[in-house]
Simulated scan of single mutants.
Amino acid sequence: MEVKIGVQHAPREIVLESGLSAEELESIVADALSGKTQLLSLTDVKGRKVLVPADRLSYVDLGEPSIRKVGFGATL
């Protein structure tokens, strides 16, 4: 699942691909926003760990990755 994280005072968003389900990701984000944890901690499919202070979160966008088509039949 694709995750986009907006951070306050940062010009770009953080984009990562997670192996977790939408429900698991939503629970992790909710814990960070409610104050149960100080950091939003996520690990992508390549093993890279992303830590964002919970008080600096602007938004978290959870969505499916777009499927890339290859070949001559790829035109829409």
Results as ranks from 00 to 15, higher is better:
residue 18 S to A: 14
residue 18 S to L: 02
residue 15 V to A: 12
residue 63 G to C: 12
residue 12 R to L: 11
residue 38 Q to W: 06
residue 46 K to I: 05
residue 47 G to F: 15
residue 43 T to A: 14
residue 65 P to N: 07
residue 19 G to C: 06
residue 3 V to D: 00
residue 36 K to V: 13
residue 34 S to A: 13
residue 34 S to Q: 10
residue 4 K to P: 02
residue 2 E to A: 00
residue 16 L to H: 09
residue 59 Y to L: 13
residue 35 G to I: 12
residue 45 V to M: 15
residue 14 I to T: 08
residue 73 G to E: 13
residue 60 V to Q: 01
residue 74 A to N: 04
residue 67 I to N: 07
residue 53 P to K: 08
residue 15 V to G: 08
residue 38 Q to P: 06
residue 5 I to W: 07
residue 28 I to H: 04
residue 15 V to I: 10
residue 46 K to W: 12
residue 21 S to C: 07
residue 34 S to Y: 09
residue 20 L to F: 04
residue 66 S to E: 13
residue 33 L to E: 10
residue 24 E to W: 05
residue 47 G to Q: 15
residue 37 T to N: 13
residue 42 L to T: 00
residue 28 I to Q: 13
residue 11 P to L: 07
residue 76 L to F: 05
residue 54 A to R: 09
residue 67 I to E: 06
residue 20 L to M: 09
residue 9 H to T: 12
residue 52 V to T: 08
residue 4 K to H: 07
residue 51 L to N: 15
residue 16 L to Q: 01
residue 33 L to P: 02
residue 63 G to A: 15
residue 53 P to F: 06
residue 23 E to G: 05
residue 67 I to L: 04
residue 75 T to N: 03
residue 5 I to G: 00
residue 12 R to G: 09
residue 72 F to S: 02
residue 64 E to W: 15
residue 41 S to H: 02
residue 12 R to C: 05
residue 36 K to E: 15
residue 76 L to N: 03
residue 43 T to I: 09
residue 60 V to I: 01
residue 2 E to H: 09
residue 50 V to M: 06
residue 45 V to D: 14
residue 29 V to Q: 00
residue 11 P to E: 08
residue 64 E to I: 12
residue 51 L to R: 14
residue 33 L to D: 00
residue 35 G to Y: 11
residue 33 L to Y: 02
residue 18 S to F: 08
residue 1 M to E: 03
residue 25 L to E: 10
residue 68 R to L: 07
residue 16 L to T: 08
residue 58 S to L: 15
residue 39 L to I: 10
residue 38 Q to L: 12
residue 63 G to D: 11
residue 67 I to V: 10
residue 31 D to Y: 03
residue 39 L to Y: 15
residue 68 R to T: 05
residue 28 I to E: 06
residue 11 P to M: 06
residue 49 K to S: 14
residue 64 E to Q: 15
residue 6 G to D: 03
residue 59 Y to W: 14
residue 31 D to C: 08
residue 62 L to C: 06
residue 70 V to G: 00
residue 13 E to F: 04
residue 19 G to I: 01
residue 65 P to T: 07
residue 70 V to I: 10
residue 73 G to H: 02
residue 74 A to Y: 02
residue 5 I to L: 01
residue 38 Q to F: 08
residue 17 E to D: 11
residue 37 T to D: 13
residue 20 L to V: 02
residue 6 G to C: 01
residue 31 D to N: 13
residue 46 K to C: 09
residue 6 G to H: 01
residue 56 R to G: 08
residue 8 Q to R: 10
residue 22 A to T: 08
residue 55 D to E: 12
residue 40 L to M: 04
residue 24 E to R: 04
